[in-house]
Design a binder for these strands. Sequence first.
DNA 1: ACAAAGTATGGAAACGTTTCCAAGGCGTGC
DNA 2: GCACGCCTTGGAAACGTTTCCATACTTTGT
Lengths: 345, 345
Amino acid sequence: MPPRPAQTARATIRDVAAQAGVSVSSVSRVMNGEPHISPELHARIMRAVNRLRFEPHSAAQALRSRASKTIGCMVSDLSNPLYSEMINGAEEEFQRAGYVLMLAATRHEQDRETAFISAVRRRRMDGLLLFAGDNAHTDFTGALANLDMPCVAIDREVPDVPSVRADHRGGGLEITRYLIGLGHRRIALLTGRAALLPSSERLAGYRQAHVEAKLTVDPDLIRPQTQGSDIAFSEVCQLLQGPDRPTAIITLGTHMLAGVMDALASNGLRYPDDISLVCIGDTDLARHATPGISALTWDLDQMGRVAANILLDRIRGGDAAQKIRPVYLPTRFILRHSGAKPRAP
Amino acid sequence: MPPRPAQTARATIRDVAAQAGVSVSSVSRVMNGEPHISPELHARIMRAVNRLRFEPHSAAQALRSRASKTIGCMVSDLSNPLYSEMINGAEEEFQRAGYVLMLAATRHEQDRETAFISAVRRRRMDGLLLFAGDNAHTDFTGALANLDMPCVAIDREVPDVPSVRADHRGGGLEITRYLIGLGHRRIALLTGRAALLPSSERLAGYRQAHVEAKLTVDPDLIRPQTQGSDIAFSEVCQLLQGPDRPTAIITLGTHMLAGVMDALASNGLRYPDDISLVCIGDTDLARHATPGISALTWDLDQMGRVAANILLDRIRGGDAAQKIRPVYLPTRFILRHSGAKPRAP
DNA sequence: ACAAAGTATGGAAACGTTTCCAAGGCGTGC
DNA sequence: GCACGCCTTGGAAACGTTTCCATACTTTGT
């Protein structure tokens, strides 16, 4: 194998100093915008910088100054639009503050989580943003405890780490109340991985609504399966085969809703007449299905931004110990036409 | 402001060497898995590494070894599911190869593009993945030419840079032929930003189909607007007001399709009877609308992976100069029920 | 048996910054 | 006129690795 073509040598701070006839430290000061620099020194240095197209080597900066200007971001699945929209918002805030995002998708595998934590440590990243992930991963939580680094979680519960969360419990409560109010007594819940905070919170809201109405919850109606439209399809088919089928379904809006709709169609059922439907997370599909599907929504972009700013605050040495209490963002119920009173039996 | 709580000091390679009673270079060799190391030296060093929880400082490594194990990834919009799915695939390949992804969303702003290029240079990233972006940005192309770094573009044309592309031209040709074959003569095309390669290629296919059928193209039917369902809505409304309205519409599947459907509905039109519809990029909405909407699709995850592997090859010193010819991935037309013969006028 | 070639280790010089310290010049208040 | 402090600059020591070179000890080939 031929040797790599030599990178065209790049100017170092020393070259700049030599070119401008000044000391290295002066160049450094100018590059970092420090005060107490005479105008003509500044001008001379900038001229040299431009002539040589000097660009500071950030590894050297990080090594010496102990700040990498880098944020780690751990998410289970990049292609999940819920996450990517939050990341999009967060990234904008980081960019504005001069930080770069390092991204890793963990696919819910504990190995990848710990591997990324290790990368975060080795790279001495300045902060870490954690998106919803399995709380069951104890190794991970352990690794995190030793992390000793500003950290913010999104829709995830991590000890001693501040978090931003949507009010999934309140949302679950609201939509369950709504369905109960319509007269439903058997409401199926397809809310995604049980180990994820949003799912467990929604379930709590769902239960609370039942308690309020003095109804008991049939555990068979709760289907905390993984994401995926095919899973949703088979789960719903199974629910519909049963003797005492549900009269309403609450389901995740991304991917799962599609499977649910397929399942209804292939069982010859139509919403809202035969069965009521509410989905979690508003999507094009929910909006444009006919009839439109009522949905629970919240501001993903905003969540990303809020989390990013909390993290930036902490990096800047903000009042660390305080306010690790979670910040909650509201959910909003969009009423469309997928709910109705249950058929008389 | 109180001083930041001192980071608990972390072990350096020197600490490890001292603890194990060996030289620094031996520790380095062990950490990098070099050969010619006696088993007992290896064991002694690993024991010290574990005891001290030593983790090499990657900035120092990067500084000395000139490899940052980092890939830059530039994309206009992270929340666009087309992109995020490709990124998801690419990230998996990078992760497997031990690289970390650095992500930036440019929002089609040239400033952000050049800013990111600068970040890439300063951080001495090992490679760069470019997603579809405006070819009109000449400053950017200039900056890129000086980049002197392994680079792969996805659905984007950059001089001297290899690329991976879906066969958008072939796809555009296929769906336009299909509609012409049904008898349509006035086919509207809402295909996204004209400056993006996929759009211009689709347009080329669209034109070619017209040429083949000896039809002339009415430029008014081509609406190369930006993304967004509201834009699509108003564009379609405008098209439908005109005296000689189109009998078929080709539209992007993400977001725009929703606006198109709204526009049809609010003009009292139904597909496929009143007007035919085909969308580009398969989505839940296209699949589950009633009737189902025919769609052009291609493998996003695969595209990301292919691009990642080409880039990794080049980083490893692969036959650089060769094969900068674009790699094309096929598109596939999924026939559903949104197309019909045009109404007799 | 001896040169040549390899194997296993250590020592020290980079890599390109930031930052601490020192020092010269200059104004200021007494 | 002098101690003091501020502004401006330079010099040099870190930061934590990798890598080159040297060295001591084994093999191997003849």
